[in-house]
Design a protein around this nucleic acid. Structure first.
Lengths: 196, 196
DNA sequence: GTCTATACACCGATAGAC
DNA sequence: GTCTATCGGTGTATAGAC
């Protein structure tokens, strides 16, 4: 086939442009906050005019949607890498996952807001973008089940405590380690509570 | 003086109108979210035209500022009432304050967002509006000090855990009690950790 | 696919009559 | 103090030429 190679190049270029737009969107989000992204700012950064973005994304929310998917996929990858080797000690297994999530969440405030807070009233993630988010929760559920923690209440408490430390760190000491220092202590507390 | 009584009536009416505007703003916040308040929506609800609001508030952010002060003042009042009688048991003292804060925070999502999250990039609370927020933290610090908890790290952990349960409750089970059910357990855990 | 031009809907805020 | 009228700006999105 003669058509195929040129199709490939076109498709490559197209997805490369999409990636450029998403990268630019993340830059804007880091500078002005996730809720303050505008098509003008994104277009400026890619060297386009705002209407041209519509050749690659159907709407602004479609950009948010792709970013949402990227954020949770990155989290899933980070947790998979961290929980790769099966941990011998149950307490260490709990700590490894908690630290990995904390590190990923705290590393990027804008990303964390997109992942966990409602950014705008109308934006709702699509099922495809939402999938890696569900996968993260499933990974957590399975990982804790392996060390004998299966109660729904225990999962709720675990996630709320780690999430609380993340939010406190980002809100009250961004870039610091004031609440990061409490993470291992909190997880030890939880392990005691779970009877490990 | 003949002038004084009429001045009083005028001042009363003025502050009554201010209160009406703030009440209307809270209503809008509850319906559309704290970040989506517009002067038009507020004015409609008070039976005014948007420009007329400027006779009572210097700007939209001045309205946010007053609301911020109200929210934290209400929290301060709630905590003072809850921690009024000196508690005999240290663990119960911890629980009383945690429950009071949790209850107040969870009761109003819009209010909680205004109190703890950044609503817009340009809004910064004035020192006067910020004062009751500082008073709440001081009350917490003193209350825990009375039962022997004085370490900064302990305060950080306590506030992050309670705050984490609040956020989880509002985000994942608004109006329910899925995370509220974990509150006493979490506080018991903390009491153990603090050696009480 | 990118551009110009523009529609369309908002928003916060100000000026000035009453 | 409230009103009408309006300014000046921003935002998403579409139409149509190239």
């Amino acid at each position: 086939m003669l058509v195929s190679p040129s199709r490939d190049r076109a498709a490559e270029r197209r997805s490369a442009t999409r990636r450029e737009i998403l990268d630019a969107s993340w830059e804007v989000a880091h500078e002005k906050g996730i809720a303050s992204i505008t098509l003008k700012d994104v277009a400026d950064r890619v060297g386009m005019r705002p209407p041209s973005l519509y050749s690659h994304f159907a709407s602004k929310n479609a950009i948010y949607d792709a970013m949402f998917g990227q954020a949770w996929q990155g989290c899933l990858d980070a947790l998979r890498a961290a929980t790769d080797g099966v941990p011998s000690d149950p307490r260490e297994a709990m700590a490894v996952m908690g630290r990995a999530y904390f590190k990923y969440a705290v590393a990027d405030q804008a990303r964390n807001q997109l992942m966990n807070a409602r950014i705008s009233a109308d934006f709702q993630p699509s099922p495809e973008a939402y999938a890696p988010s569900l996968a993260v929760w499933e990974l957590g559920r399975v990982h804790l089940a392996l060390i004998g923690v299966t109660a729904e209440a225990d999962l709720d408490l675990y996630s709320a405590v780690v999430g609380g430390l993340v939010d406190a760190q980002l809100a009250n000491d961004p870039g610091g380690n004031r609440y990061a220092r409490q993470l291992d202590r909190a997880i030890g507390m939880l392990a005691d509570q779970f009877g490990l």
